[in-house]
Amino acid sequence: MTPSSEYNFAYLDEQTKRMIRRAILKGLAIPGYQVPFASREMPMPYGWGTGGVQVSAAVLTPDDRFKVIDQGADDTTNAVSIRTFFERTAGVATTTATPVATVIQTRHRIPEEPLTEGQVLVYQVPIPEPLRFLEPRESETRKMHSLEEYGLMHVKLYEDISRHGHIATSYAYPVKVEARYVMDPSPIPKFDNPKLGDCPAIQLFGAGREQRIYALPPYTQVVSLDFEDHPFEASKADHPCGLCGADDSYLDEVIVDDTGGRMFVCSDTDYCEGRQAAGHRGKDLGGKDAA
């Protein structure tokens, strides 16, 4: 599709992109630190990825190959409309294949396929402040970040254990970056947390409504918070994928009838399709990898 001439490349004007890039550079220089930026109105509602879209717009170049995933899937409403948005306003090539994409905008997942150097992963972030639900005052949370007062974060985990017997936080699991800033990794499942650290790709986080950008440069140390006697555990549904038989990927539970029937499938559609193309079959396709 050719880009519409009514828009500047990638929708935003150059001054805005410059402002966002400055915020991104600052974020990369101070991993995990939330950089305020002048978030713009985007032609989509808050909560649909306005932050991620602005970050993507600022980092896209005409040579990029763009991929959008929503909960791991390339074909959901949010993913399709954002992909079309950039096809139309930037004219960049798009793809669904993780290894060939150079910029990947994601909502709530990290692709199963390991990322490589040169790739940029852009997260959509609803609430960037990990301390928000414990401490409602922004002035106070900023002070807590600047003074490294993170005891409160463990109070949240303590509450989890006292109520559920284990750390029940299963997404947006707080992490500590380079032994300094506590960061909300956006609502990715905690299964994905180990992929945040030591990642060859650049990871950028954009929160449009909250007007914050933060970032993880490549090969950053990221540690999930835990207790000595309740260590962090990356959890997933204890099943293999019903379609491709993978037992190492994060699964969605799909209700298939009204008699309690359900199947578990990879949330990363590209990964699942890739495995099926390579001949793997899960039990719901009657395949040889059936467990």
Partner: peptide, 27 residues
Amino acid sequence: LRMGVSAGGNVGERLMAVGARHYGDIR
């Protein structure tokens, strides 16, 4: 007090703030 946090969490907060990271001990 933190009204949304259990009694144990309220008492444990200061311990965690000074670096206690063992759930059993805190409790």
